[in-house]
């Protein structure tokens, strides 16, 4: 009885998914009044940002990005609080297999390069593909590599949480400065410079760098917490 109902519900769900997504008519240009043309035009003319995706993520819909940063912060703290009681003392690991010498030697070489790539990706977020979220994740993978290659590699949880907090605070403060200077929250209040320069786009690169720091520290903290969980 229960199973029949479940199957029927799933069938109905599938039917509605099918009728809409088999023929979504995406190619038809019925969005003449939509937002996309304004985004494409204003990104170049007013925000002086080469990467339209970044302009949308950080400026047009910057409020959503602030929300998503908060979601990540919440998820990281939630995991921390759930695993809190289970955590070992500093230095103890749940995984205790030693890494081979190839991995540990290679990790030493790769680590600075990975960090540099991550920093490059989030500093150039307004010019090239990528940005704060991607760059931050790349940096966290660098720390993951070091953590699995060296058993005595440790990061201070306090420093991570201070950097994370400062990045978040600065994001909101920059938003509020737009509020005080220009009129609305997250509005640009700095000179926008010329298109395609490193120093262009007003507050967009600054916010993306802060997002980069925040994502990097949060994900590193997450990896560190999980790695030190009692099995």
């Amino acid at each position: 009885m229960k199973k029949t109902i479940v199957i029927l519900l799933l069938a109905a769900f599938g039917y509605f998914l099918a009728i809409t997504f088999l023929d979504p008519d995406f190619e038809k240009d019925r969005n003449r009044n939509g937002v996309k043309n304004v985004y494409l035009e204003k990104t170049v003319s007013e925000l002086k940002t080469a990467n339209t995706v970044t302009a949308i993520v950080v400026n047009f819909r910057g409020f959503d990005t602030l929300g998503e940063v908060t979601v990540l912060f919440l998820a990281a703290s939630a995991l921390g609080s759930i695993l809190f009681k289970k955590r070992h003392h500093v230095g103890e690991r749940s995984i205790t297999l030693p890494a081979s010498s190839i991995v540990s030697t290679g990790a030493k070489l790769l680590f600075p390069a990975i960090i540099l790539l991550g920093v490059y990706v989030f500093v150039h977020g307004h010019l090239t593909p990528g940005g704060g979220f991607q760059g931050g994740t790349i940096i966290a993978t660098g720390f993951l590599l070091m953590l699995i290659s060296y058993r005595n590699f440790s990061i201070s949880h306090n420093i991570l949480s201070v950097i994370e907090s400062l990045a978040g605070i600065l994001f909101v403060v920059i938003g509020l400065m737009g509020f005080i200077n220009g009129g609305t929250f997250l509005q640009n209040f700095m000179p926008t410079g010329t298109l395609n320069n490193l120093f262009s786009g007003g507050i967009i690169p600054i916010i993306y760098i802060l997002v980069g720091f925040k994502v990097a520290t949060e994900l590193t903290g997450l990896i560190y917490t999980i790695l030190h969980e009692k099995g």
């Binding site: 994370e164 907090s165 909101v172």
Partner: peptide, 21 residues
Amino acid sequence: SPVLLIAIPLLAAFLIPLLGI
């Protein structure tokens, strides 16, 4: 303004771990 209803709690949420030290 209404945006402060969101911005202030978010600011405080990021600030609390620092202040707790």
